[in-house]
Amino acid sequence: MVRIPGDPGPWGQIRYTLGLRLPPGNRDWVRHDLTDAGWRSRMLLRHVCLMIPVCAVLALLPGPWWVHVSVPLMALAASLLAVAITADELRRSRLRRHGIAEPPRIR
């Protein structure tokens, strides 16, 4: 895989996934991540990685086997739907947080 200039590395990507701001040296990578083709799928994939530990904790709740399966799946489905619906606003917020101009809207 080709690395983009300003790639934050594994720890920087974890910080980015958690919603923290990256240093100015990573601005080109952030711009690519949020404006290049496939930005929605990358955002959803990051969210799935963030939700896996939460779903694992939910699976440990007491109850019958179907509770251990359905509660984490419902939490994951609901959060993915929320991220998919608000993806444009989330992207705008991250772009502003990193001091990058928003791309023009195509109507």
Rank of each mutant, 00 (worst) to 15 (best):
P72H: 07
R21F: 14
H68I: 00
P103Q: 05
D36R: 05
V57S: 12
T17C: 11
I85Q: 06
R105C: 07
I52T: 07
L50Y: 12
G12L: 09
R15G: 07
P62I: 03
R105L: 04
A87H: 11
L22R: 01
L34R: 08
W39Q: 15
W11F: 15
V48F: 01
R42C: 01
P5Y: 03
M51Q: 07
P64V: 00
E89T: 04
G12Q: 04
S70T: 10
L81S: 04
G63P: 02
C55M: 08
A101H: 04
C49M: 12
I52Q: 08
S41H: 13
E89A: 03
L22N: 07
P72E: 09
I4K: 08
A77D: 11
P62D: 07
D7E: 13
R40H: 08
P62K: 03
A59Y: 09
L90R: 04
D33C: 04
W39D: 14
G12Y: 08
E89L: 02
V83I: 15
L80Q: 06
L44Y: 00
W29Q: 09
V71H: 03
G19L: 10
R92C: 10
I106A: 13
A56E: 03
R40W: 07
D28M: 11
P23L: 00
I14E: 15
M74F: 06
L44T: 00
R46I: 04
G9I: 10
W66G: 03
G99V: 02
A56N: 05
L44M: 13
A84D: 11
R46F: 00
R21W: 14
V69F: 14
P8S: 10
P53Y: 01
V57T: 14
S70V: 08
T17H: 10
G63H: 01
P64Y: 01
M1S: 15
T35H: 01
V30I: 11
R105P: 02
R97L: 15
S70W: 04
V69A: 15
P24G: 01
M51P: 01
P8T: 06
P53R: 03
G6V: 09
V30N: 08
G9K: 10
V83W: 06
I14P: 10
G38C: 08
P8M: 10
A77W: 09
W66Y: 15
S41V: 15
I14V: 15
P104L: 13
S41R: 15
V30K: 05
S70K: 00
V54D: 00
A82L: 13
R107S: 13
T35M: 09
L58S: 02
L76T: 02
I4G: 03
L45E: 07
I4E: 11
I106Q: 15
L20D: 11
R21P: 14
R3P: 00
S41F: 15
V71K: 01
L20N: 05
L58A: 12
A59E: 05
A84W: 14
V57R: 14
I100C: 02
D36Y: 11
A77S: 14
D28L: 13
M43K: 00
